[in-house]
Computed example of a mutant assay.
Amino acid sequence: MADSEEPGSPAAPKKNRRRVLMLVAVVLLGVVAGGGTYAWKRWKPAGGGHHSTTTRMGPPVLVSIPTIISNLDTGGQRVEFVKLNATIEVNSPDDAQAVNDAMPRIQDAFQTYLHAARADELQGAGLYRLKEALFGRLNVLMAPVPLRNLYFVQLLVQ
C-alpha cells in the first residue's frame, strides 16, 4: 500500500529520503572504487607484479679525491687552513671513470666552497652541513652520473 500512496501523504518523505540515501551511497561507492582503481594502477609495480630493474646494483666503487688544502675565511684575522681527504661512492666502474674525468672541476668546487667557509662553521653539526653542501655540489657537477655518497676520510682544521 505504501507504493500506491500519494506524494502528499505522510509516508512520501520517508520514501524520498531512502532514495536520496541510496543515491548518495551509490555515488560514494563509485568514488571509492574509482579511487582504489586509480591507486592500484598508479602504485603497482611494472611488469605484472615483478620488480623490473634496468641496471643491476653491484658492489659500490670508491673514488678518492686528492687531498685538498685550503685557507678559510677569517675576516682578515689569523690565517686558518683546512685539509680534506674525501672519497666518493658510485655504482659502477663507468661512473668512477666519469668522476675521475671530472676531478679538476670537483676539486675546484671543493676549493671554492672551503675558501668561503669559516672555522666555526666546521665544528659540531657543521661537519654534517659541510658534507651535505659538498655532496649537493657534486650531484650538480655530475648530473647524469648517479652518486651514492660522499665520505670524509680526514678533515683537519688548523
Rank of each mutant, 00 (worst) to 15 (best):
A2E: 11
G8T: 15
S9I: 05
P10W: 14
A12N: 08
P13Q: 01
K14T: 08
N16A: 15
R19K: 15
L21I: 10
L23V: 00
L28Y: 01
G30K: 02
G34Y: 04
W43M: 09
K44A: 15
K44Q: 15
A46E: 14
A46F: 11
G48Q: 01
H50C: 03
H51I: 13
S52M: 10
P59M: 11
L62S: 08
L62G: 00
L62A: 07
S64L: 07
S70E: 15
D73F: 13
G75L: 09
Q77A: 13
Q77E: 09
R78G: 01
V79L: 13
E80V: 04
F81S: 04
V82D: 09
K83N: 08
N85P: 03
N85C: 05
E89H: 06
S92E: 07
P93E: 13
D94Q: 12
A98G: 04
M103F: 02
M103G: 00
P104A: 06
I106F: 07
A109S: 15
Q111M: 11
L114V: 04
A117V: 05
R118Y: 07
A119P: 01
A119W: 10
A119T: 07
E121S: 15
G124E: 11
L127D: 02
L127E: 12
K131W: 01
V140C: 00
V140R: 04
L141I: 15
P144T: 12
P144E: 05
P146C: 14
R148G: 02
R148Y: 04
R148F: 10
L150F: 12
L150A: 06
F152A: 03
V153G: 14
L156A: 11
